[in-house]
Amino acid sequence: MSRSRVVISLLAVVVAIVLQTTVFSPGRIQPLGVGPALVTLVLIAVSTQIEAEYLLMIGFTGGLLMDLIGSGTLGLWAMTLTVIAYAASRLKGRFGDGPGYVAATVVGLTVGGQVLFVLLGTLFGQETISEPELVRKVLLPGAWNLVLTIPVFWVLGRAFRSTPGQWAA
């Protein structure tokens, strides 16, 4: 069992949150006014490297951190990223089918996660569903995550290479 893989995964999520709130924040790198959903992408990327239980815990923790430094209700991103982690743990077995499957998973889970967050936000009294730029905010992170898939998977692949062998899926 490799605890270092869990630690690397958790650190990757924290780094993703820091980059999301600085480099990909408004006024910096945000093509068309919306940045990528980097934490979602990192979660999908590490799904092949750690066991499903740990992936769920990391998804929940990362989501809670996002909630704590965001402006919305606590727990919404925690629930959203837990669902994404669960879906990724179920879909990762087919990542070997080809890059098209990975790309579809990245776009699908990113956009699905944004939609789920909007629905949960609406359920808990936020007005996210009535935002004027809603469609752009839901769809564009999927497109940017697709663009970033190769570099993020490559960087995390390098980070995990030095750790003991991969767990069985």
Partner: peptide, 28 residues
Amino acid sequence: RIDRVTVLFLSLVAVGFIVATFDVRSSG
């Protein structure tokens, strides 16, 4: 193993739901 994962998943979603409810009721 799949059952264990699903149980953990449902538990975490339930915790998230409770946290959100608590946060809304305490107005942050």
